Simulated assay, not measured.
Amino acid sequence: MPRADFYLIAKDRFRAQPLRLVCELARKAHDAGLWTLVLARDAAQAEQIDDLLWDMGDEVYIPHQIAGADIDEEEAAVLIAAPDVDAPLRPLVINLRDAAVEGSFERVLEVVPADPEARGPLRERWKQYQARGLDVNKHDM
């Protein structure tokens, strides 16, 4: 059964830089051998994630690419897609956009902002995933 995991930002380092949590989730997925698609909110966010993935420490290398014309699917274990790029879904999807992910995947990760005011759309998504029969879980990060 597909799963939806909601990660609530709690730790100070993730509050200061929420995209660090995204990179941490991508690293864990890569370590587990899961091909990952990150659905960025916009092109600027895609670039930020790309930069942060290069900056995970000397011991960490996560093969990643921004989706586009010159993509090497085999090399990019983590694919980062801006909304204007039609990237195929992968088994694991990290969703940073406002809408629930449609289509076929094994697991979707949703990052929940620390600000309670910004959580409305995520409550809606939780209900949508539940209604579609996904196993829905929450994790405090």
Rank of each mutant, 00 (worst) to 15 (best):
A131Q: 15
D140C: 04
G68E: 10
A46S: 06
G120P: 02
I62L: 14
N137R: 14
A10L: 07
D140G: 04
A32E: 08
G103L: 11
A100D: 11
E59Q: 08
I62N: 05
V85G: 12
D70N: 15
V38D: 00
L25C: 06
V101E: 04
R123P: 00
G33K: 05
A67Q: 10
R27A: 04
A131R: 11
G103S: 08
G133T: 01
R97G: 12
I9L: 13
I94W: 00
V85T: 15
A67I: 08
E74L: 13
R41G: 07
V85E: 15
A114N: 03
E102N: 13
D98G: 15
E47R: 09
K138M: 13
P88N: 11
R132Q: 10
V101Y: 05
K127D: 09
L25F: 08
R97L: 00
E106P: 03
V85N: 15
D86S: 15
K127C: 02
D84V: 07
I62D: 10
K138L: 15
P18G: 09
L134E: 01
L96Q: 12
P91T: 04
V60I: 14
P113D: 03
L21T: 09
R119F: 00
I80Y: 11
H64I: 07
E59L: 06
P2H: 01
K127P: 03
Y129V: 02
D135W: 06
L79Q: 07
D70Q: 13
A69V: 11
P121E: 04
W35I: 01
M1F: 10
W35L: 08
A131N: 13
R3M: 12
D42L: 05
D51L: 09
P113Q: 03
C23I: 04
I9S: 12
I71F: 08
L109A: 12
A26K: 09
A16K: 14
W126Y: 14
A100S: 12
P2Q: 02
L109F: 10
D42F: 05
A16L: 12
R97K: 12
V85P: 12
A4M: 01
A43H: 10
I94G: 01
Q48W: 00
M56W: 02
D98T: 13
A29Q: 02
R119E: 00
E74R: 14
A10R: 14
V78P: 06
A10K: 12
